[in-house]
């Protein structure tokens, strides 16, 4: 249970809510309506679960748990891409699933996440998501780590935040069994959402690390200006602000911070494939404008969803504004530099 009862309706959450800038969403009134009247409001579905409001709350109300509890078992207002990723997760959760043969007996496991299906269903975004996996494995190789690639089902992040707890439990059960049988003691993932889910929503009992926490030992000499976007799952949910920055600066990169960074970072607008609409697009434009203002030629992020949505905006056919910087994943950026011999 979330501690939503301690809310005293000061409205600080609403004043900081990124969705409030572009719509009538109000975290305060959604607590009020749910708590006092037992109403089901649309605001619980327009929430991005970006985690900005619990940071500012004087009563430390756990708004994210509240949203997750409220959403549970209800029909989402809208899921982006007609819910194709949700359907895929639900389909695979209803199958028995064969525990695949082990791809080695390394103690380190690498989970690539849903990059395959992102490549297949978001083919018009013009982003090579599979490169995140190949780059990560290449960089791990450089560090002398030989992981076994885990061929699990989806981690279930999206379905969990869309209120489909039963689907999540099905996926979790399978994945936990898979991890136990693989015999690993460290799980490495290249996706911020997988990292959050495996650390907080699974009780695995093994070490879970995000790839960005490893790259500071690479020893590359890159002479470039970049800017970094904090994904909500890695930043505010997991409190990991320094590792990706250290990974960049330790390899010789000059980091130019955006106006809002670290705890105050703006959201890309689509956290779990919900709400990709005009309003969240405005948030995306705001973030891209901030990145442009830094003058850096590369925008780095560590979440495949942020990457997809920034690139979608950038490659839009009839775009009002053209952005002339690249948006790349941290691992892909470093692997490309490694390839170039730096």
């Amino acid at each position: 249970m979330s501690n939503v009862q301690s809310c005293y309706q000061c409205g600080k959450c609403t004043s900081i809510c990124p969705m409030r800038r572009v719509s009538k969403t109000s975290p305060r009134s959604s607590i009020y309506n749910a708590n006092i009247y037992g109403f089901e409001t649309q605001d619980i579905w327009t929430c991005l679960t970006c985690g900005l409001c619990p940071q500012e709350c004087p009563q430390q109300v756990d708004f994210l748990s509240f949203i997750r509890e409220e959403r549970q078992g209800k029909q989402p207002l809208a899921i982006a891409h007609l819910g194709v990723f949700t359907e895929l997760a639900e389909l695979s959760s209803r199958l028995n699933g064969n525990i695949a043969e082990k791809s080695g007996d390394s103690k380190i496991g690498f989970f690539p996440g849903c990059v395959d299906s992102l490549d297949l269903f978001l083919h018009d975004v013009k982003t090579n998501f599979g490169e995140i996996t190949t780059s990560s494995v290449r960089l791990l190789d450089k560090l002398g780590m030989k992981p076994q690639v885990l061929n699990m089902k989806c981690c279930g992040h999206d379905v969990l935040w869309q209120g489909k707890k039963d689907v999540f439990n099905g996926l979790k059960e399978y994945n936990k069994k898979y991890i136990q049988e693989s015999g690993i003691d460290t799980l490495v993932t290249s996706c911020a959402e997988c990292y959050r889910t495996f650390s907080k929503d699974y009780d695995l009992g093994i070490k879970v690390i995000h790839t960005s926490q490893l790259w500071d030992k690479l020893g590359l000499k890159i002479n470039q200006d970049v800017t970094y976007h904090d994904p909500c799952r890695l930043g505010r949910h997991m409190g990991e602000y320094d590792a990706p920055r250290k990974a960049l600066t330790a390899n010789g990169v000059t980091l130019k911070e955006m106006e809002h960074s670290k705890e105050k970072a703006l959201c890309c607008g689509v956290s779990n494939f919900m709400n990709c609409n005009e309003q969240t697009k405005a948030l995306r434009i705001a973030r891209m404008n901030e990145a442009e203002a830094t003058g850096a030629k590369t925008l780095i992020t560590t979440c495949s969803k942020c990457l997809a949505h920034f690139n979608c905006l950038k490659n839009e056919k009839d775009a009002v504004k053209k952005y002339d910087f690249d948006v790349v994943d941290l691992s892909v950026f470093l692997a490309r530099q490694l390839e170039a011999g730096k």
């Binding site: 719509s23 649309q42 209800k74 029909q75 989402p76 207002l77 809208a78 899921i79 007609l82 609409n277 005009e278």
Partner: peptide, 21 residues
């Protein structure tokens, strides 16, 4: 909930077209 699927889809279409839901 299953029967309400259609209306949900109609809403999401309206959403794409830019009208506020």
């Amino acid at each position: 909930l299953d029967t309400s699927d259609i209306s949900v889809n109609m809403r999401s279409i309206a959403n794409v077209q830019g009208s506020e839901v």
